[in-house]
Design a protein around this nucleic acid. Structure first.
Lengths: 234, 234
DNA sequence: TATACGAAAATCGTATACGAAGTCTCGGGG
DNA sequence: CCCCGAGACTTCGTATACGATTTTCGTATA
């Protein structure tokens, strides 16, 4: 018999312990959107599905809670977190902060090969613009930015960036995932960002540009919904 | 009989579950420095000391791991994290990033009463300068900055600030905790920071000042040890 | 003496079992 | 018809037990 656990293990190829297996499986399900926000996670059910006991599942859920991907209420249960609009604002603001820094800190280590790769990805994003393919566009967008921030030498900041992206990705399918008005602008800003990095612009300048690039999406979202942030912006 | 668990519970007054109890106790021990970096945490021993079983302790340790306060190696055990100098650099850099943002975002909500309180704390820091009392100075320093960033409306950023401070506090007693050359400067910069906030300076300006205030301590540390960061700074 | 090997101890990882707390349902009363 | 309470049901929280893995230490051998 082939359990869901085994296929998850095969897919990720990195689960070493059973708690790690449960974590990987749940993380994948949530980030991929198969477990939508608000979905309930019953420990015993997950345990049975993965053919493990509840203890490792419990541990996995607590880890996901620490990442902000699920909320865990005492004696009630775990639910996939995320649909609160204000939470979206917080996440975007935090991501704009840490991603801006990560991109700036990465910049000196970004070589011509990385630049070329990013340009290629950006070109494909342009195509998605014509084809009206938001899903692919979103995926490419993450790939583009990954190239720019993955060389960040500070692992803490890099980890925060990953967490922010994962939180956002978990919201795909919800209202916030894609702001059409921003898509075209975004592709242009990507080009400007690459130019800055290519010419070795000062760290502060790259940081500001990268931060603005993201917070502009937040602004567009706010403009579209007609909401006011209700708190200061960076 | 009075167990260590009960006294910890009484001290914090917030432990609801046993895993929460174990977490609180370990967190307090680590942050207070009673469990120095490198100390080994054996689950069964901690469990016995707190008069609970190993399962809640295990969960507490994983939570602490997520915060970066302990490292947990498979089939080996948990140790209190922290003495690596490069790790100190990463932590300080991250803290300078998030604390700068938190302070800037707090600024509009900081009222005259807060300002007055901060001034009072800063005055006491001046006294510590004369009395050569680094421990008290460090404590007051945290209190001072708490007043400035605790109004941060974004809970994610605020949480990151708390984590950073806790990590640093856990290192007290190690080489990094106190940079004498910075103490005097620091008190002056506090005054400048208060002036900025008092007059309602732009968010970006407050952020930069708060960030610089912290990263300057990092620079002083590097200057003293003669080390080079080996990676870009913000 | 240094090193390789093996057994024993220590410690973690997980399964199972039971108790505690919360939630839902259904029946009775207003 | 609506409100409310007792019971059962669901789900988490923790304890205990056992297996798996690593480390340690003694011993024999080159």
């Amino acid at each position: 018999m082939t359990t869901a656990a085994e296929s998850a293990s095969k897919a990720a190829g990195k689960a070493v312990s059973k708690s790690g297996l449960a974590y990987d499986w749940l993380h994948e399900q949530i980030v991929a959107g198969d477990l939508p926000p608000g979905a309930r996670l019953v420990l015993s059910q997950v345990a049975e599905k993965l053919d493990v006991s509840v203890v490792p599942v419990r541990e996995a859920v607590r880890r996901l809670e620490a990442e902000g991907l699920v909320t865990f209420e005492k004696n009630v249960g775990a639910t996939v977190a995320g649909i609160d609009p204000v939470e979206y604002l917080y996440t975007m603001q935090t991501l704009s902060l840490v991603e801006g820094a990560a991109t700036a800190l990465s910049a000196p280590a970004v070589g011509p090969a990385d630049i070329a790769r990013a340009r290629e990805v950006n070109a494909r994003m342009r195509e998605c613009l014509h084809d009206f393919d938001p899903v692919q566009f979103t995926a490419l967008n993450r790939e583009f930015h990954s190239v720019l921030f993955e060389h960040c030498p500070n692992p803490h900041i890099l980890d925060l960036v990953h967490r922010g992206w994962n939180r956002l990705k978990a919201l795909r399918g919800s209202t916030f995932s894609y702001v059409p008005e921003r898509a075209a602008e975004s592709v242009e800003e990507h080009e400007q960002l690459l130019s800055l990095i290519e010419r070795g612009a000062p760290t502060a300048e790259v940081e500001l540009a990268a931060r603005r690039h993201r917070s502009a999406t937040l602004d567009a979202y706010l403009a579209r919904t007609g909401e006011s942030p209700g708190f200061p912006t960076l």
